[in-house]
Amino acid sequence: MAGRRLVPALLAAVVGPVAVFGSVLVAVPGAGTGPAAWAAQPPAATAEPSPTPTPTPGDPPGAPTNLVATEVRTDSVTISWTPATPGCCPIAEYHLSVLPAFSDVITPYRLGGDATSLTFRAWPTSEFRISLSARDTQGTYSPGATLRVVTPATDTGPDTTPPQAPTDLAARDASGWGAELTWSAATDDVGVTGYQVYWFDGWYTSRLLATVTGTSHRVSLAPGRNLFYVRAVDAAGNVSLATPTISFTGTGPQTPTPSTTPVQRTCHVDYAVSAQWRGGFIAEVTVHNVGAAPVDGWTLAFDLTDGQRVRSAWNARYTQSGATVTARDLRWNRLIPAGGSVSFGIMASWTGGNAPPTGFTLNGGACATG
């Protein structure tokens, strides 16, 4: 009997009754004149179902979306958001922080994983910066979402909508001791009436330098880092969000050329006792520049002739020698524009009497009073 030829895929073949397991037998021509050979073919392939994707362990949640302010009042702000998409694990909680702009006081909130809104306390004409992120049950945080909100001056007036923020804050004619700030005009539903120019120390101290009606203002630069920003204001007292800050490194004012003739500056000083009690009092001092040129750096001297002793001051540095008190500018309030003013306060003690001071001089020049 002639032999039979098997292909490799053949599982089983026998002479006579044929037994094949797991294959389909087909006849193939034999070699030479021998009988036909049987070969096994594999069954047709069937498509495997696609596996359902599963998150990789440790995948972070997606960021919360649609973070918006749904109600803004003078004393509160309500915000809402669309829940974060889970990564590997369910959302456990939301972490939210509220930072009053240009301060270092952050209020944190921890909310449940199903939270979608929050109301926090606020105060009028203030900007708040909000940051929100999700945390899952494995402790992994999502990317953050942010929002800036400014509160109105009133809840009941005819105008509770703040102006849009000024744009394009820049500087020209900058030097080590000063710069001209410029910006593009803001818009408002009623009308912008002015712009507030602020100095900022980069940490938590922010001071209003001037309120102007135009779109430029010259500022002086103290030695070191100086930051400035601008807000628009409308007739109702609403303020806009602040511009991004602009930064300068100052070297201080130019050293004046020595002269045998002291520079006389025209000035007027108002002195008023705002509170008094047995043995002590508080007084406000306002220095007006009534001259034609700005005063860049000031020292005000006066005599307390009734035995008063200054114990503290604000918005100025002070020394006292006998009856003579000398108050000097701080970095942020060194410039008194022509027609402008600067104010500071003192708290002092007294024994026998509390007569007003005499002999005010600004940078060596006598000032008018009354």
Rank of each mutant, 00 (worst) to 15 (best):
P143S: 07
L208K: 09
A153M: 12
T351H: 12
W183N: 00
R231F: 04
A115S: 13
I79D: 00
F128G: 00
T125S: 15
S184L: 07
I246Y: 03
W203T: 15
W81N: 04
A338L: 11
S117Q: 14
A19L: 13
V105F: 10
L25E: 09
R5D: 11
T160C: 08
A366C: 05
T211M: 07
T193V: 15
S341M: 08
Y318V: 09
T193M: 03
M347I: 10
T215K: 05
D188K: 05
V273F: 06
P256H: 04
A355I: 12
G365N: 10
R265I: 08
G364K: 09
C267Y: 03
L300F: 04
D168C: 04
R135D: 00
F228P: 03
A171F: 09
R207W: 05
P337Q: 08
I336A: 03
G365V: 07
G144V: 13
L330I: 11
S206G: 05
H268W: 13
S131A: 15
S349W: 10
G340P: 01
F281R: 05
V68N: 08
T205H: 10
P90K: 09
V72F: 07
P256K: 02
I91M: 06
R172C: 01
P61C: 11
A153I: 05
Y271I: 06
T182Y: 09
R207D: 08
V269R: 05
G32Y: 14
R331I: 08
S133C: 12
S76I: 02
R334C: 01
A348K: 06
W298N: 04
T160V: 15
V287Q: 01
A222I: 01
T266A: 15
A171R: 04
V295P: 01
G279P: 04
T319P: 03
L208M: 12
S216T: 15
V287K: 01
D234I: 00
A313E: 00
A115C: 11
C367I: 03
A12S: 15
D296G: 06
W314Y: 15
M1W: 12
G359H: 11
G359K: 06
A236I: 10
G34E: 14
W199P: 00
P86Y: 09
V18W: 08
G112F: 07
F344N: 00
F120Y: 14
L99A: 05
S206K: 14
P29M: 04
F128T: 03
S126H: 10
Q254T: 15
A12I: 09
D188L: 03
T46R: 14
G365P: 01
A31M: 10
A44C: 04
G178D: 03
G139N: 11
P163A: 07
A293D: 13
A115H: 06
A327F: 01
G359I: 07
L111K: 11
V295I: 15
Y204G: 13
D329T: 11
T125K: 13
G30F: 02
A186S: 09
R231W: 05
T255G: 12
T54N: 09
Q308K: 10
D296P: 02
E93Y: 13
P64V: 07
